[in-house]
Nucleic acid binder design. Structure first.
Length: 424
RNA sequence: CGGGGAGUAGCGCAGUUGGCUAGCGCACUUGCUUUGGGAGCAAGGGGUCGAGGGUUCAAAUCCCUCCUCCCCGACCA
């Protein structure tokens, strides 16, 4: 959907020059400096317009890939009765991180740290027959976890955005098929978000089940370690390793310990939850059988932090194309009667072909506008200044390569769209 | 929860052997001049020095308690 051209002077992008105190992670600093998020208290963040735009783009990529894999979007409640958690005994298992309270009627409630119980209860309400299987449901929703320790801004927060999907199958074969579909969808999601992930076999932990894989991105900050082969790049979880040195995959390379951020985790759960909640279906042979589950999570807000952590330079963020808050920024060097209408005309033309356009029309000094543009990291910048316009020229700058190209005023849109399409 | 660091104007900081009216840079307001890489001059506004208690003639500064934030550890997306 086309949206209106956004003018910075009427928008809300509070950038800062100073590095915020009490921050160490580059992504944390940039999230704050570029005006993407605001911290309310440790582990609790507001999303400002620019940050929200990125979050929404990431969500939409995930939606596309989930829908493509045959999953159906739902929206489950955060507010959950504790009795539900007692059925799986996870009220005890997740005690440490669960935010619990009594409501005014005295009911014991919690804010959902995850949704296996809720989704399983929901499926129990509707699914009775093998004819209704398989089904995969997903949601993108806020999760609440009273983490013992928050970390690196939105990398590990008490309130965060997560995509969680759940598959329901009549047998192991179906589960494995759905698992594979999700696995592939995840690869696609991360690739589209401009991330190179490593995938490792993992422990299932509190989720339960047998087979599980983690999707991680190697970054300077992170809470996980992976061992990666310096020759073939095969990776494995460090927790699963012994002291071996040779790569088990290619036998040539050496395994090196890397810090990584976990972004996604897929599990073949089996019947842990469906057994506990007695969710069964009637199969073709007339037998009652438990439904077989899989669950699949992506830390959506964490993903945004990971993108910044791995896509930046000394001047600021360098957004990957598909998740950038805008496609192009038109920077007016001066407030000038010649320049402004031209900027509006360019903006209009680009908007009409579906690009998301930000016009920096603020009455600020050129230096500050250039610095801000570098900081917020829109992939392309069209620079309109008196000096170059006198020669009939307009400049285009690529945020990633920092390459600049001059075009004549009249050819600009045509030439820019060529660049735009060529780099798709 | 254990260990380490830090809380002074919106932001970043100095001041802390007890001392005078709490300061600097940025940001903000007004005016003039500027305008291709965080502009200049001038005049302004803005502070319960994290909170509470104590010592003292006198506390941002010393003592006690508490709160908050960041980093390292145990757990997770």
């Amino acid at each position: 959907m086309k949206e209106n051209v956004i003018y910075w002077s009427k928008y809300f992008i509070p950038t800062t020059k100073e590095i915020p105190a009490g921050t160490e992670a580059a992504s944390h600093q940039l999230l704050l400096r570029a005006g993407l998020v605001n911290m309310l208290t440790s582990g609790v963040y507001s999303y400002l317009p620019l940050g929200l735009r990125v979050l929404r783009r990431v969500e939409d990529i995930i939606r596309e890939e989930m829908n493509r894999a045959g999953a159906c979007e739902v929206f489950l409640p955060c507010l959950q009765p504790i009795e539900l958690w007692q059925t799986t005994k996870r009220d005890e298992a997740l005690k440490e991180i669960m935010i619990r309270f009594k409501d005014n009627r005295g009911r014991e409630m919690c804010l959902g740290p995850t949704h296996e119980e809720v989704i399983t209860a929901l499926v129990k309400d509707y699914v009775q027959s093998y004819r209704q299987l398989p089904v995969t449901l997903y949601q993108i929703q806020t999760k609440f976890r009273d983490e013992l320790r928050t970390r690196f801004g939105i990398v590990r927060a008490n309130e965060f955005m997560m995509k969680d999907a759940y598959s329901f199958d009549r047998d192991e074969t179906g589960l494995k098929k759905n698992y594979q579909l999700m696995y592939e969808a995840y690869e696609k999601v991360f690739q589209r978000c401009g991330l190179k992930v490593v995938i490792v076999k993992a422990d299932s932990g509190a989720m339960g089940g047998d087979v599980s894989h983690e999707f991680l991105v190697i970054a300077p900050i992170g809470e996980d370690h992976v061992l990666q082969c310096d020759a073939c790049h095969f990776a494995m979880g460090s927790s699963m390793s012994t002291e071996q040195a040779a790569c088990p995959q290619c036998q040539n390379g050496k395994l090196q310990k890397q810090i990584a951020i976990e972004l996604g985790h897929v599990f073949q759960l089996g019947t842990k939850y469906t057994d506990a909640l007695k969710v069964v279906f009637l199969d073709e042979d007339g037998q009652q059988k438990p439904i077989i589950m899989g669950c699949y999570g992506i830390g959506v807000s964490r993903l945004v932090a990971a993108i910044i952590e791995t896509n930046r330079d000394d001047a600021g963020i360098v957004w990957p194309r598909e998740v950038a808050p805008f496609d192009v920024e038109i920077l007016l060097v001066q407030d000038d009667p010649q320049l402004t209408p031209l900027a509006q005309s360019y903006a209009q033309q680009l908007q009409e072909v579906g690009l998301k356009v930000l016009v920096d029309d603020r009455l600020e000094s050129p230096g500050r506008k250039f610095k801000d543009a570098d900081l917020i990291g829109i992939p392309y910048r069209i620079i309109l200044g008196k000096r170059t316009l006198q020669e009939g020229k307009v400049e285009v700058k690529d945020r990633k390569t920092l390459a600049t190209t001059m075009f004549t005023k009249n050819d600009l849109i045509k030439e820019f769209l060529k660049i735009w399409k060529a780099t798709c």
